[in-house]
Amino acid sequence: MSKRLLSRLLGMFQSRTQVGVDKVGNRYFTRVEEVDGTMKERRWVEFKGADQDSTTVPVEWICWLNGCGM
């Protein structure tokens, strides 16, 4: 495994910030990372349990994930 890939994988868990949790227990995170020399915010959801059903994401969180704000 390359050092860059390993560093990126480790950074994914170390520098993330939990933003919130919805009513079904899905957790929402953000992280700022460098992409092509520019700092960008990355937003994602970690689903509760093994079932990764995107229909459980409430509309307001879908908007947040897409950068609309909240």
Rank of each mutant, 00 (worst) to 15 (best):
V45N: 01
V35E: 14
I62L: 15
W44E: 04
W64L: 03
E60A: 11
S7Y: 06
D53V: 06
F47H: 00
K40M: 11
M39D: 11
G37F: 05
E46F: 00
A50G: 13
R42V: 13
E33Y: 02
E60P: 04
S7W: 02
W64F: 05
V32T: 10
V45E: 00
S15T: 05
V59F: 11
E34W: 09
L6I: 15
L9G: 08
L10Q: 07
P58E: 04
L6C: 15
Q18D: 06
F29K: 00
E33K: 05
T38E: 15
D22S: 05
S15F: 06
G67Y: 01
D51E: 13
V35C: 10
P58W: 01
V24G: 08
Y28F: 13
Q18F: 07
P58V: 04
K40L: 10
K3M: 12
S7M: 09
E46K: 06
E60C: 07
E60D: 14
L5N: 10
T38L: 13
V32F: 08
R16P: 01
R16K: 14
W61C: 02
T55I: 09
T38D: 14
R31W: 00
F47T: 00
D51C: 08
F47M: 06
T55R: 11
M39Q: 11
G11H: 08
E41T: 11
M1P: 05
F29N: 03
V19P: 03
G20C: 05
L9H: 10
T38N: 14
R16S: 04
D36A: 14
R43S: 01
L6M: 15
R16T: 04
M12R: 08
T17M: 11
M39C: 04
R27F: 04
Q18G: 08
R4N: 07
I62E: 14
K48S: 05
L10T: 03
R42T: 10
G20F: 02
L9R: 12
E33S: 09
I62H: 12
G11F: 10
R27N: 05
R16A: 02
G37I: 06
V24Q: 11
G67T: 06
L6T: 15
K3A: 14
V57R: 00
N26K: 02
L9E: 12
E46L: 05
M1Y: 10
G11K: 10
G67L: 04
G49H: 01
G25R: 00
F47L: 06
T55W: 08
L9V: 10
R16Y: 05
V19R: 01
T17V: 14
E34K: 14
M39T: 07
V35F: 12
R27P: 01
E60R: 07
Y28W: 09
T56H: 03
L6D: 15
G69W: 07
D36R: 11
Q52F: 00
K48Y: 07
E34D: 14
V45Q: 00
V57K: 02
L65S: 04
T30K: 10
A50W: 11
M70A: 14
G67K: 02
R43H: 03
L65H: 00
M39E: 12
R43E: 00
V35T: 12
Q14L: 15
V32P: 02
T55F: 08
M70V: 10
E41M: 08
E41K: 06
V21R: 08
Q52V: 01
L10D: 07
T55Y: 09
T38W: 08
V32M: 06
Y28M: 01
F47N: 02
I62N: 11
G69T: 05
N66M: 13
T38R: 15
G69A: 10
V19K: 01
